[in-house]
């Protein structure tokens, strides 16, 4: 009985918190009003090509290629465009990306998506390297 009651109570708490997260928390922290058509098209490309199968984004995905949450801050739009439009497998280090050879519109949609992602309030993730000299 204790377990059943506890489960029901915690389940309800979970639903209430989830409803709050979805209705106000996430929209505020992700600036949902800035999700433009370009951002959505970028996300569709990101999804259809399973970029998460090599990269992480918001810290989720595979651990083979750079975290993309702050990629716009780190690299700038021009660099990213070069990566995305490259006809050869992109590599600086020897580890290869798939050569997608995206056109200009596709590249700029993905950049819009990364720009939006980069502005999300992630409660402090990714942390500042605290041992950096």
């Amino acid at each position: 009985m204790f377990f059943l009651g506890g489960t029901v109570v915690f389940f309800l708490v979970f639903l209430v918190l989830s409803a709050n997260t979805l209705s106000s928390g996430i929209p505020r922290q992700t600036h949902a009003d800035k999700v433009s058509q370009a951002v959505i098209d970028g996300k569709i490309l990101f999804d259809e090509n399973n970029c998460m199968g090599c990269h992480t984004i918001l810290g989720e995905g595979a651990y083979y290629a750079p975290e993309l949450t702050k990629v716009v801050d780190r690299r700038g739009a021009g660099f990213i465009k070069a990566v995305l439009t490259s006809k050869q497998p992109w590599t600086l280090s020897g580890r290869k990306m798939v050569a997608y050879g995206f056109n200009d519109k596709e590249a700029s949609d993905l950049i819009a998506f990364f720009t939006w992602i980069g502005e999300i309030d992630l409660n402090g993730f990714p942390p500042e390297p605290d041992l950096k000299k």
């Binding site: 377990f3 489960t7 389940f11 979970f14 918190l17 709050n20 810290g59 402090g124």
Partner: peptide, 18 residues
């Protein structure tokens, strides 16, 4: 169930949730 349902929160720390 007592721990696991609300434990889901450990995936919500850093994804843009409160």
């Amino acid at each position: 169930f007592l721990s696991g349902i609300l434990g889901t929160g450990h995936h919500y720390y850093y994804i843009g949730a409160p």
